[in-house]
Design a protein around this nucleic acid. Structure first.
Lengths: 209, 209
DNA sequence: TCTTATTTTTGGACATTGTCCAAATTTATA
DNA sequence: TATAAATTTGGACAATGTCCAAAAATAAGA
């Protein structure tokens, strides 16, 4: 992280993320970022012609970070699943500015909108596949297909907006405590559809974090 | 709604809501609103010194609208509860611009933030009281107190962010269909904690909307 | 090493934004 | 009708994202 060997572009990206996270994308001007880095605005627009391009870069970085999370689909357990969610939530905190501007970004930033469109269906499909894996390994049990759809919808809602809600309702709590709370919600969401084995593992996982 | 007998202030509020809903609060300039109403910006700032004041006015209007919804706390049933939620969701659609900018408004608009702070705890308390009413009238049954807390947390999340998610995931659906979807989610959320009587009423209510 | 390209950085312009205010106009009051 | 108050105007201000020609710094070729 030593600032010396950072390229100009890296410096801009890094500082922009820092300031955006602190005060919100919409409320940090490019000139402020430039001033902090002791350069002029035009220099930022040399690397990122528009602010949307800069924000899009951050969005790509978050995507890459999330893509690094390995999902063991064959041997999936409930604790592994919750652990993956835990990692996703931590990435969200690192790029919190994006999640807090989620709605506006999607109908303002064409670049991000286009990419999101193509990945969101995949995400829900992966969630659904994970639930089916957990059924097969005896952690979950559903009576109807609609119950899986319901669980997936709820999870999608939590994953997309947990940080937004935490930001308005649990601002006084640490990120760690916030994540704990929403992991707990996911656990309780799954509870009614757990086998005895599943209930046990959730309790253990939630008890140890 | 005839435009003639509207005062200047009413015209501004009405047109601002219309344009904000259409394109987002942050992306509609005061000069655009003024131009549409064939007046100058200064005229808007005469009634609303800052844009925040104008937005705050809309927020107050939404609060008033929601306050008009009558909650029969003594004879509450599940269908009545879902019906109330239905009305709230319709009000949200009318003031959609506010809900879509929810996060930013709360850490940008001091006026709205202060008011929200004082009402949000009440709202959760009301939700909790409603759940207890539904237990007493034999619609719901909880084994532990934590289950009620969980249900209330989930409902709060849905109520605050259903419109945001609908805006990114179900843009192609009509508002009516969107509301239907999220009422359904609430129904399925309650299902595992329903008595036979409760299950029946939810099925009926969700089957008829 | 000197010259020529190429990349990077600068400084200033532009239209637009929210905010502000003195002057002009309209409306109400006495 | 004369005076006071409320409303509307037009123009200013600083800050925003975007853009571009010229200057500076770096790399490449001789």
């Amino acid at each position: 992280m030593s600032k010396n060997k950072m390229s100009t572009e890296e410096k801009i990206v890094s500082k922009a993320l820092e300031m955006f996270n602190e005060r919100g994308i919409e409320y940090v001007g490019l000139r402020e970022i430039a001033a902090t880095l002791d350069m002029r605005v035009g220099n930022i627009t040399y690397y990122f012609p528009t602010k949307d391009d800069l924000v899009n870069r951050l969005s790509l970085d978050l995507n890459r970070l999330n893509a690094e999370i390995v999902i063991d689909e064959v041997n999936l357990s409930l604790s592994k699943f919750l652990n993956i969610l835990n990692q996703v939530f931590h990435n969200h905190v690192k790029y919190r500015c994006l999640l807090l501007s989620f709605v506006h970004l999607l109908d303002q930033n064409k670049l991000i909108a286009a990419r999101y469109e193509s990945t969101q269906k995949d995400r829900n499909a992966v969630l659904k596949k994970n639930m089916n894996s957990l059924v097969e390994s005896g952690f979950l049990k559903f009576n109807e297909e609609t119950q899986i759809e319901y669980i997936v919808s709820m999870m999608a809602l939590i994953i997309r907006f947990w940080l937004s809600e935490a930001n308005v309702s649990f601002k006084h709590l640490s990120s760690e405590k916030q994540i704990q709370h929403y992991l707990n919600l996911v656990g309780q969401l799954l509870m009614p559809y757990c086998t005895a084995k599943g209930k046990k593992e959730i309790s253990i996982y939630l008890g140890t974090i």
